[in-house]
Design a protein around this nucleic acid. Structure first.
Lengths: 150, 150
DNA sequence: TATTGTTATACTCTATAACTATA
DNA sequence: TATAGTTATAGAGTATAACAATA
């Protein structure tokens, strides 16, 4: 009968499993979730400044410095002076980083297909509606809490 | 049309939001996700040893020591000598910890109701089917990877 | 000899505050 | 004066390895 609470618990259980699986998979390539998130953004946007990355990833500039340090060391990105603003750096994917993101895009689709492929179109549509509704509601709730907090 | 990939992305986006909201909410009570997870297990099982907690939470015994240290300091649990095994400790919820978990159970249901309450029974059932299927498939995948790894 | 938990050590993610170089 | 990024400092979560006390 799927009560709201059961649904939430199922969602959380699945999230935790995905997180664990992803962490293990990335770990084999010497990557972490946080660093991969940064690489993924770079893949989507092209070269950007660290300030920009901090805004998009919603983490502190200090944190971006650390993440980029690691990714430079692992050869996934380069940190070059910005040609027009000598205060800033441009973070750019190396070939290695690009290849890793291209492979990840493929894996991502395969993963999605493995998890949800065999499900009926009708159930997929219903699930999309439910998740979308939950996301909208949660965004509203967080907006309220934000108001309270400040 | 909700492709598998779109569904996965929606799921991931919602997971991240829930995680963020939960972290913020717990933070107001001086709790963290990892410590709350431990408290929740204690709430379900009653007093147990650290070894037991390490197994259930799937983290290292060393990590449990650190988590319990924090929870003792915040007054959520007590660490008492096991009456029958002098090597071990029994971790027990204090009244404060019990009250926190009782309140959390209520909040959890309210949260689920806010997110999924307004969704039709039919869509909830379809979502439950989809999530359950994904969980089962993922468990199988992880089992395979585990075999490869070792 | 096996188990329970700790100390020692280390890595990652995260944040704030103070500071430097540049705009 | 404002912005980009770093150094300094700190706390949480996580892990392995070596060790103590007890079984």
């Amino acid at each position: 009968m799927a009560s709201s609470t059961e649904l939430l618990d199922q969602l959380l259980a699945l999230s935790i499993m995905i997180d664990k699986d992803l962490t293990a998979t990335l770990g084999k390539d010497g990557l972490t979730l946080a660093r991969t998130h940064l690489l993924w953004e770079l893949h989507r946007s092209g070269p950007v400044t660290q300030q920009r990355l901090a805004a998009v990833l919603e983490v502190s500039p200090r944190n971006v410095t650390a993440l980029v340090d690691g990714l430079v060391a692992s050869g996934h990105v380069t940190r070059d002076r910005h040609p027009e603003d000598r205060r800033a750096f441009l973070i750019t994917l190396t070939e290695h980083g690009s290849a890793a993101m291209a492979a990840m895009a493929v894996q991502h689709e395969e993963f999605a297909e493995a998890l949800f492929g065999p499900i009926s179109a009708r159930d997929r549509a219903a699930t999309a509606r439910a998740l979308d509704h939950a996301r909208t509601r949660l965004a509203a709730l967080m907006e309220e809490h934000h108001g309270e907090g400040s």
